[in-house]
Nucleic acid binder design. Sequence first.
DNA 1: AACCTACAGGTTGTTGAACAATCCAGCAAG
DNA 2: CTTGCTGGATTGTTCAACAACCTGTAGGTT
Lengths: 233, 233
Amino acid sequence: MRVGVTEGMVARLEQDRPLLAQIGTADRVAALLRDNIMEGVFPPGTRLSEEAIGQALGVSRNTLREAFRLLCHERLAVHELNRGIFVPVLTSEDVVDLYRLRRLIEGGAARMAAAAPATARRAVVAAVTAAEQASAAGDWEAVRSEDLHFHQAVAALAGSPRVDDLMRRALAELRLVFHVMTDPERFHRPFVARNKVIAHLIDSQDGAAAEKELLAYLEDAERQLLAAYGASQ
Amino acid sequence: MRVGVTEGMVARLEQDRPLLAQIGTADRVAALLRDNIMEGVFPPGTRLSEEAIGQALGVSRNTLREAFRLLCHERLAVHELNRGIFVPVLTSEDVVDLYRLRRLIEGGAARMAAAAPATARRAVVAAVTAAEQASAAGDWEAVRSEDLHFHQAVAALAGSPRVDDLMRRALAELRLVFHVMTDPERFHRPFVARNKVIAHLIDSQDGAAAEKELLAYLEDAERQLLAAYGASQ
DNA sequence: AACCTACAGGTTGTTGAACAATCCAGCAAG
DNA sequence: CTTGCTGGATTGTTCAACAACCTGTAGGTT
């Protein structure tokens, strides 16, 4: 017996629809620039010349400008009229603001640990495990990367696509600052253990305790980062 | 005795620097379209033709496309490759997600009422007062506007520019949905009184109580909105 | 009648070139 | 040392063109 596609099949397909809404050249250029900015290839303060970059990537100025607009809205670039596009130089106030935002988002999300689905809680634990392995291997670049995954997973406890998006951008912005930590081991090592404690509290659905630990964590990290950041300027 | 500008004067000026970083044509076009979309001139689902709008506004396609990119990033428009720009049709899940975000942000901000500066707390009260006056005058469009101001002011208690920005965008997105409330009086009138209670709690620095009231408020509003929204589809 | 194919028309994606507006560094004059 | 000017370089904006793609339609096949 042959039948047509059912309503359920259609619903299943529609979930993957965003994957199909492919990307254009401008999006690809933006992604490329985003990586380079976050990796520190273009240090803060760099001016991103339209002509130079357009020629290097082989795209026209108009397309490049579209890509720049995207980055500007993610705050990974700043636009000054008639002066061009610059890699932002974050101030201490920006760092403070970003941590205010993180405390609000991550703290609130952690508090909802009990209500979050098990898969979301397991993702938090998985990120910590990966960080521990990277730490044991001495790969501090990977530790940093997994640390960001951890916090992304914490925010995901809120179960909100918009919060996920927001968190992604906030962490990307913070990455611009992390480069001042010339000694990643010293900065990240102590936090691996603290992440584990937080992950455990989340896994056991003790949201209140997880939030408390997390807020203390974020305040310490902010303090350390500000100290290193102020000294570097 | 004549002296040059002091360091303090320079610091004062640098604060106003963003005001100087003027706006270009693309930004102005984006602002214009943003208003029209939020006012409901372009109902959800409308396709925003590049040629039609470009001709109507007298700007070139390239400039218009820059404006579209901005709107897309604010989620006031969606871009489908090779198909164009559309006014988004929010699903019920979007509404749920937006209220999740609001509870996280506004709730967390309200909790910090005691730590917020007096000016921020007064802004909350001022918004309620304005809403009351508009309500007494029967101007329900103004009531809706002041209601949004109120929630913006609550989020501002967090004292974070990034949170302010986020809140502005979330409320703009929600406005796309509010148009289904054909009877604004019935929707908004009860909330004016509840806003007043919340504002009073914030003003008296009782953050915990304010948060509780606010969360209840948001849940009721979400429920009502979802009911009207589901029925309209 | 239902399904597939091919074609034509319209829209978007991307490029290149051009000109106006603006900024910046350097130099001259006070 | 400051002020005013000037030339070169970069960005802002527009226009025109073509390629790539989607959509609806007409016609043929089963």
